[in-house]
Each structure stands twice: as structure tokens, then as C-alpha cells.
Simulated assay, not measured.
Amino acid sequence: MPGAAVASPLLLSLSSSSSPFLSSSSTSFLPPTSSAAPHSAGRTKAAVSVLRALRAEAATLPVLSFTGDKVGEVTLDLKSAPPSTARAVVHRAIITDRQNARRGTASTLTRGEVSGGGRKPYQQKKTGKARRGSQRTPLRPGGGVVFGPKPRDWSIKINRKEKRLAISTALASAAVAEDAFVVEEFDEAFASGPKTKDFVAALQRWGLDPKQKAMFFATEFDDNVRLSGRNIGSLKMLTPRTLNLYDILDARKLFFTPAAVDYLNSRYGTSASDDYDTDDEDDAVEELLEQEVEEEGTTAEAAQDATEESEADGSS
């Protein structure tokens, strides 16, 4: 599967010994279960134990100014999966994202769909050759394809809680491994206009190699800042609407704005929910966004149908 091939090298970076979340040698946080309990009760207790095992370990991130000087510190307190299941949760989420991105439009023609081949090439017998009923057999050049790809839906489902946990686990792992930091708002530095050269110089002052992949997460970007950073091929500039697990794992360094840290703490931190219940307001917003996309597609289709009908009436 293409998704698995892409995700494997990304997940290797999460298995470093510096990360307490994904270390294979770490002990499990699950409490021991009684062997005398019935099987159904054991499954219930295990499910409850997994939810209680979710923890949050605060990581202190340095705050850098636009000139590269350290001006303070902030705390990133995110929920994380227990070490025994963290790698599996992140792997499942990245496979789901990559597989759902497949369009599934690959298509080949079978021997019944290839044009031509209606006449029998030569008679059945008395030729000394193997019998052949069509020139479009898969054994001949220009023939059909045997068991070739056809349009299909590759999408698979993942629970919303599980996907959210995978993102918070990846962010927490990067923060604990000291691969993340915070930069002050620097919109004023690009008030005169966008300039990619100044943005690259700022990355170097922050200790980032412009040739290495990095992720910049902010709640919103000023137009000049966005235009200055979009020409840097190794930099991904994400907002809460575009935050995804693949870009988090693919980046060598992560840096945020103070407002982005507050958003992550409120969205994925301990203040979001003590029992790891989804935030009803956030879920409602996501559902509304999905409904808006569907309604926009339906409206566009209806408008196109109306246009085609009017053109047909005009031609008649």
C-alpha cells in the first residue's frame, strides 16, 4: 500500500529514545486486570483502563524573538497515548490520511472494452496455429488488461477521538524531544511587503536549516508573512483548518506562535476534557464545515443542470 510505504520512514522518527511516548522499552501505563473476572467484564475494564491511561506531560518550549533571542518560555501540555499504544495509534492515523487522499480514478480496459477485435483473425482449424477468437486478447499487444485497476473508493474510517489523539501524541513527542519552539508574532517585520530572503534569514537565526523540512503553525497568517514563506519548499505553513498528522511527522522542526500554543492546549490539552470526551462545540463546527462543503457541491451541480437545461431549451 502506498500509504504504508510513505508512513514507515516517518514513524521511525517517533521511535527515538528521547521520546517517552513512543519508546518500545517503556512500561505500560495500563493497570493490571484481574484474571478471575469474566471475559466480558475484562474487556470493559480494559477499555476503561485505556481511557484512564491517557496522560499529559507538560513540555517547556523556549520563546524566541524575530532576532533569535530567547525572551521567555511557554508550556505545551497535550494529551498523549500510553507508550504501549502510541505507535499503533499514530500509524493507524497516518495510514488513514494517506489512503483517504487517493482519488481512486485509475482505470484500464478489459478485452470486452477495447475497441476492435470483432472479427475472428483466422479460421479455427487447418492453420497449424493456436486457435484465436479475437485480436484484442490480453495475450496480444493492444489487447485488454487482465485484472487491471478500476475506479474504486479507497477511503477508510477512523474515529474522531483516535485521530485527535494521534495528532496530540505526535505534537507531544516532538515537544518532549526538543524539536519544537515558539516565536513571537513578527507581522510588523514584513509590514513593508513580502520578502522571502528576510524569512529565510529569520529561520537561520532561529537555528533552522532552510533545506530541512519544518512546520510553522499559527492560528492565522498575515498576507505578507504567508507570501514570504510560501516560496520556501521545505516549509509548511499550517493553520487549525489545515493541521494534519503527515506534515507534523514529516517535519524535522516545529515552531508555533504563542496564540497557536494556546489553541493546542485548549484543543488537545488537559483543559479540553478530563475524560477524553470530544468537545461538542468543536464537533459541531466540523460537522457544519462538512455540511457546507456538501451543500456547495450540491448547489454547483444544480446550477450546472439548470444551465444545461436552459441551453437545451434555447437550441430547441
Rank of each mutant, 00 (worst) to 15 (best):
G128E: 02
K129I: 02
A130T: 07
R131C: 08
R132K: 11
G133F: 07
G133D: 14
G133Y: 13
G133P: 00
S134A: 10
R136Q: 12
R136W: 05
T137Y: 04
T137M: 07
T137F: 09
P138V: 11
P138S: 11
R140D: 13
G143E: 09
G143C: 08
G143T: 07
G144T: 00
V145K: 13
V145W: 00
V145M: 14
V145I: 09
F147P: 01
F147S: 04
G148C: 08
P149K: 04
K150T: 14
P151G: 14
P151N: 13
R152M: 13
W154L: 08
S155A: 11
I156D: 10
K157Y: 11
N159H: 14
N159W: 06
K161G: 12
E162F: 06
K163M: 15
K163H: 13
R164V: 01
R164C: 09
A166W: 01
A166H: 03
S168E: 05
L171E: 04
A175T: 06
A175I: 06
A175G: 04
A175V: 05
A175F: 01
E178L: 14
D179Y: 08
D179A: 14
A180C: 06
A180Y: 01
F181G: 02
F181Q: 05
V182F: 09
E185S: 15
E188V: 10
E188S: 12
A189C: 05
F190L: 15
A191D: 10
A191G: 12
S192W: 03
S192A: 08
G193M: 04
G193L: 06
P194V: 11
P194F: 03
K195V: 07
K195D: 15
T196Q: 13
K197T: 13
K197L: 14
K197Q: 14
K197W: 09
D198P: 04
D198S: 10
F199Y: 15
F199R: 00
V200W: 05
V200N: 06
A201C: 06
A201R: 12
L203H: 11
Q204K: 15
R205V: 05
R205N: 14
R205L: 10
W206E: 07
D209M: 12
P210T: 03
P210R: 00
K211W: 02
Q212D: 07
A214D: 03
A214H: 02
M215A: 15
A218F: 00
T219I: 09
T219Q: 08
F221Y: 13
D222P: 10
D223F: 10
D223Q: 04
V225L: 11
R226V: 02
L227Y: 05
I232L: 02
I232H: 03
S234A: 12
L235P: 00
L235D: 02
K236T: 11
